[in-house]
Computed example of a mutant assay.
Amino acid sequence: MTPARAPSRRGIPLRALIPNAVTALALCFGLTGVRFAIAGQWEQAVAAIIFAGVLDGMDGRIARALKGQSRFGAELDSLSDVIAFGVSPAIVIYLWSLQHLPKFGWVFALAHVVCQALRLARFNANIDVEDQPHKSAGFLTGVPAPAGAGLVLLPLILWMWTGISELREVYVVAPWTALVAFLLVSNLATYSWTSFRLRSHMRLGALVAIALVGAALVSAPWPTLGLISIVYVLLIPFSIASYRKVRRQRAAAAR
């Protein structure tokens, strides 16, 4: 007689609830940014989206630490990213500036949302693909979703920092929004955390630098966020050059 099989357990394991809850919180904070933008509270709107980015960076690490990775969590993370880093920043930047561009302002806002969705769809489609040259070399393909949200909000951040009224003009915000949308879906190699290797004698200095940046974010958030975003954009050409160097080295080693 064949022994009866134990019923298979379906559903989400308990250890996966914590990272999924963090992902849901990121979604909530991203949407809360829209609520603040409707009320004209721009600082709170940007802060909510930035905090959503912090939570987005934590959920994956928590899942790996608890061994709570799941396909459900990966899909929830992508849906959360589309809303928190696509829909919310687009509405914020539209209410802040793009609404003053007749007919086409909403098109630029939609471009950001669509490109975020396309980027995340491409990421999900490539999860099980083994041949990913950028990933295997420690680089990302295009600008990641949280960074894209931060970049599209850069004119608003700089405006809160400097008070320069021209930063709010549509002839500044619209082209910048289009550029960020392109970077999201581009095939450009961009730096990821795994791209950097610190030598042992540099670790203490790196910790000091991180602590100083953290203190600067608390005491002067908008200048610090503005400078971080500008530095990130300036690093993109260097990341492209670094990846080309890695690709040449691989090609030479394969001969």
Score class of each variant (00 low, 15 high):
W161D: 04
A145K: 00
G138D: 02
A252L: 13
A181N: 05
S97G: 08
R248S: 15
A45Y: 07
W161F: 03
A181S: 05
G138H: 02
A90M: 07
G57Y: 03
L55W: 02
R15G: 00
A137V: 03
A74C: 10
S165T: 14
A253N: 11
A65V: 03
P223R: 13
G163A: 15
I50P: 03
A39M: 15
R122N: 06
L151V: 09
L17D: 01
G148D: 00
G33P: 11
Q249P: 11
A111T: 06
I18Q: 04
A121G: 07
T224Y: 09
A125E: 09
P144K: 01
A4D: 11
V82K: 10
A215C: 15
V246K: 14
W193G: 10
T194F: 09
A241L: 08
A48R: 13
R71I: 04
S8V: 12
A74I: 03
P175K: 05
R248G: 14
G40M: 13
S70N: 03
N126R: 15
A149Q: 00
I210N: 06
R248E: 15
N20Y: 07
R244S: 10
S8W: 14
M1K: 07
A252M: 13
L101R: 06
R10Y: 00
G60W: 04
L110S: 09
W176F: 14
Q41Y: 10
A24E: 12
G57V: 04
R5Q: 13
V113W: 02
A26L: 06
G57T: 08
R122Q: 12
M58F: 08
V173C: 09
A47P: 14
T194S: 08
P223T: 08
A216V: 10
W42A: 03
V208S: 09
F29S: 14
K103C: 14
A6C: 08
H100S: 15
P13C: 03
G11F: 07
G86V: 02
A63C: 07
W96C: 02
K245T: 11
A241G: 07
I83Y: 04
I230W: 06
V54S: 07
A63T: 01
I50R: 12
R168F: 05
I91T: 08
P102I: 15
